[in-house]
Computed example of a mutant assay.
Amino acid sequence: MDPIAGIAIYFVLWWVVLFAVLPWGIRSQHETGEAVPGSEAGAPVRPALWKKALATTLIAGVAWVFVAWIYVYQPISFDDVPFMPDLSNEY
């Protein structure tokens, strides 16, 4: 795998995983009863962003290893996917 492609794939995976991890463990000010005057009641009390960034990095790393393994060893080729267009007869 080209290093630039590997970095790009990791970057995309990291952002997708981040948006999946962000809601984990969030409690709003309204739920906890700790509303700060002048703030939105739905704002999180303790978002723990560093922990979520670390979890995102680890999960994205595992996902990237899986994607790289599929790319390098090709246990599933594009020919095995039934809805992929036939690209063998290029112009």
Rank of each mutant, 00 (worst) to 15 (best):
V21K: 02
S39H: 03
V72G: 11
W15A: 14
H30S: 11
T32L: 15
V12N: 03
T57S: 13
P47D: 10
L22V: 15
T32M: 15
W64Y: 05
A8W: 01
P44A: 15
G33R: 05
F83N: 06
R27C: 03
G61F: 07
P37E: 08
V72D: 13
L87M: 12
T32R: 13
F11T: 15
T56C: 05
V72S: 14
A63Q: 03
S77K: 14
V36Q: 08
L18W: 13
W14H: 15
S39F: 01
A8I: 08
P82Q: 12
W15R: 14
I26R: 09
M1V: 14
V12D: 02
R46S: 10
V67Q: 04
V36N: 05
A20W: 08
A53S: 07
V12K: 05
E34A: 10
L18A: 13
M1G: 14
V81R: 03
G25R: 12
V21I: 15
Y71A: 14
A68G: 03
A63D: 01
V62E: 00
H30Y: 08
A35C: 06
N89G: 01
V81M: 09
Q74C: 07
P47N: 13
L49A: 11
E31Y: 02
D79K: 12
T32A: 13
E90N: 10
G42I: 02
K52Q: 08
A53Y: 04
Y91H: 04
K52I: 05
A55H: 01
V17F: 04
V21D: 01
S28P: 01
W14D: 11
A41P: 01
D2Q: 06
L87E: 07
Q74V: 09
S88Q: 11
A43G: 05
F83H: 03
L22N: 08
Y91G: 10
L22S: 06
Y10K: 10
Y73F: 13
A53Q: 06
W14S: 13
P75N: 13
Y71K: 09
Q29R: 13
L22T: 10
S77H: 10
A20P: 00
V45S: 06
V81F: 06
A60I: 02
G61Y: 05
G33H: 05
Y73G: 04
A5W: 02
P37H: 05
W15Q: 13
D86C: 00
V67E: 02
V62A: 04
G61K: 05
P23H: 12
E40W: 02
V62F: 00
E31R: 07
V65K: 02
A68D: 07
V81N: 04
A5R: 07
V16R: 01
E34V: 03
N89M: 04
P44I: 12
L22R: 11
F83D: 07
L87S: 09
G61C: 10
G42F: 00
V16L: 11
I59R: 01
A60F: 03
M1D: 10
S28M: 04
V45N: 05
Q29V: 07
G61S: 13
A63T: 05
A60W: 00
H30L: 12
F66Y: 08
T57E: 03
A5S: 07
L49N: 04
W69Y: 12
